[in-house]
């Protein structure tokens, strides 16, 4: 038996919103420790990894590990039937899970709705992602990162990210001209959500597709801050941390000529 009840149901809506543009089908891997998801986009150059700890649910019950194969478009349609303040419970039979039960309860418990989502077999590649010491780790307001991606898309479909000890610079070059945004580290003790920090082992300069990066910024509502981790010749890591876990996006850099 699998059961996971999330008091803050709106979080599940936001999470789905942050994944569904990148991936259409995905396995939710359920275990004693929580729920995780790893999936790549069609071209296999971007990867999303989601982790939700069991402690974030009340209650959480999972007797043995199993996977829920879900079409995210279908799940999204059903999730639209949940109110923003609803408590959401996910239920499935772990021995023969061919459907996922979703229970939406309003705060006064007067209205309960129940939906069953048909599950599917999804045969997906699963990559092992090692813990990495990145050359550069940047924390910045998530809304700022979203704005930079949106603004620079006016100029080009690619952005070069340069990180040095005292600034992170985003540069775009296109047919109409060029644009860049530079941010310096700031620490605002009274407003930590607005601070920018740079941890640097060595300077990095990497180019990425803005289409993917702006897709990743769908995670913005999940966290005030975003973490960007860069190393030469490695995929960029974009992480949004939540109380209950995290969502991590990886993107292969543009290489060659």
């Amino acid at each position: 038996m699998f059961e996971a009840r999330l008091t803050q149901g709106a979080l599940l809506k936001r999470l789905l919103d942050s994944v569904k543009e990148l991936v259409t089908d995905a396995n939710f891997d359920c275990s004693e420790t929580g729920i995780s998801l790893q999936a790549m986009d069609n071209s296999h150059v971007a990867l999303v990894s989601l982790s939700l700890r069991a402690e974030g649910f009340n209650p959480y019950r999972c007797d043995r590990g199993f996977s829920l194969g879900v079409n995210l478009n279908s799940l999204n349609k059903i999730m639209k039937c949940a109110g923003n303040e609803d408590v959401i419970t996910l239920k499935a039979d772990d021995s023969s899970a061919d459907s996922l039960c979703l229970l939406f309860e309003n705060s006064s418990n007067e209205r309960v709705s129940e939906y069953e989502l048909k599950l599917m077999d999804i045969d997906q590649e699963h990559l092992s992602i090692p813990e990495t010491d990145y050359d550069a780790t940047v924390m910045m307001p998530s809304a700022e990162f979203q704005r930079i991606c949106r603004d620079l898309m006016v100029v080009s479909e690619s952005v070069t990210i340069d990180v040095s000890k005292d600034e992170i610079k985003f540069t775009a070059e296109g047919e109409l001209g060029t644009g860049n945004v530079k941010l310096k580290p700031t620490s605002t003790i009274d407003k930590p959500e607005e601070s920018i920090t740079i941890e640097l082992g060595q300077t990095v300069s990497l180019q990425f597709s803005l289409k993917y990066l702006s897709n990743f910024t769908r995670g913005t509502p999940l966290s005030d801050q975003v973490m960007l981790c860069l190393s030469d010749n490695m995929p960029l890591l974009v992480e949004y941390k939540m109380d209950i876990g995290y969502i991590r996006y990886y993107l292969a850099p543009k290489v060659g000529d």
Binding site: M40, S43, H44, V45, A46, L47, E125, H126, L127, S128, I129, P130, S158, Q207, S209, M234, P235, Y250, L251, A252, P253, K254, V255, G256, D257
Partner: peptide
Amino acid sequence: TRSQIRMSRYFSNN
């Protein structure tokens, strides 16, 4: 033009 390499070239298969 510059292009992206598939993720499986960076991370190994489980």
